[in-house]
Design a protein around this nucleic acid. Structure first.
Length: 238
DNA sequence: AATGGTGCCAACCGCATCTAT
DNA sequence: CATAGATGCGGTTGGCACCAT
């Protein structure tokens, strides 16, 4: 079989990249730019699939990538964004210059997830002694682009976005749900949205479990607790 | 020195979504 | 509108390095 790059090997290479392969990929990107990954194996001389090429570039070869341990402020940001966004690694990484989604995900899985698992086990007995508190989770819901814009506009026009506990809850839910239902196109839009969000409110800290929303404005922490009946997500449909 | 356990991270895989036709 | 191909994402795995026994 003749490969697109002229290589007669019938199997695409897998596994660790060599420095020669890195050079080929770098040269290709310098010449043709990022994107159109399906053309990379064709034009670069690499015997790799397009996905492998893309990943290698994004996670390792791309300029201005940071290596090494995460700084304290980066860790803090990861924790806050994870509370807000969940496992949306690409979105979280987008807020941390020089870090990739893979970096953030690896950090979370090795440092945070394993630690919280241990802590959970340790606290199991303690928690079992406490009274049960109903936990409400947002129901999965797909929002149309129209509803996204509507909710966005309405809240900005009001000039006073968080006026009641119920508002806070739906506000936080809106944020969570409106983050990129379609990752490819919507992420830019939602990144803009997040930009505005952080500019407007600085620090926003959301914890779903137990229905707590903590706002930190002017150094004041407001703490809300919601009765179960108030947990109605009021998002306009269209 | 040999072996086993663990953590870390680069890379792969499957799937969802977008885009072009 | 339907479909195929391209792209990007999150979950998972494989392999290496390091440490303890």
């Amino acid at each position: 079989m003749i490969r697109p790059n002229g290589n007669t090997s019938s199997v695409l290479r897998k596994g660790a990249w060599t420095t020669e392969e890195d050079m080929l990929l770098k040269n290709y990107i310098e010449k043709y730019g990022e994107g159109r990954w399906h053309l990379v194996p064709l034009k670069s001389g690499l015997n790799r699939c397009r996905k492998s090429c893309r990943l290698r570039w994004l996670n390792y070869l791309r300029p201005n990538l940071k290596r090494g341990d995460f700084a304290e402020d980066e860790i803090d940001l990861i924790h806050r964004l994870h509370k807000l966004l969940g496992n949306r690694w690409a979105l979280i990484a987008g807020r941390i210059p020089g870090r990739t989604a893979n970096d953030v995900k690896n950090y979370w899985n090795t440092h945070v997830r394993s630690r919280s698992k241990r802590e959970k086990e340790l606290n199991n007995h303690e928690r079992s002694q406490q009274p049960m508190v109903p936990v409400i989770r947002p129901q999965p819901r797909t929002l149309s682009k129209k509803s996204y814009m509507h909710a966005h506009t309405e809240r900005h026009d009001s000039g006073n976005l968080i006026t009641s506990s119920n508002d806070s809850l739906s506000y936080a839910y809106n944020i969570s749900q409106q983050i990129a239902p379609s990752p490819q196109v919507s992420d830019n839009k939602n990144n803009d949205y997040l930009d505005e969000l952080f500019e407007d409110y600085g620090d926003l800290n959301v914890e779903w479990e137990g229905l707590r929303v903590t706002e930190q404005e002017d150094g004041q922490n407001n703490f809300f607790k919601f009765p179960i009946d108030d947990a109605i997500w009021d998002i306009p449909d269209s």
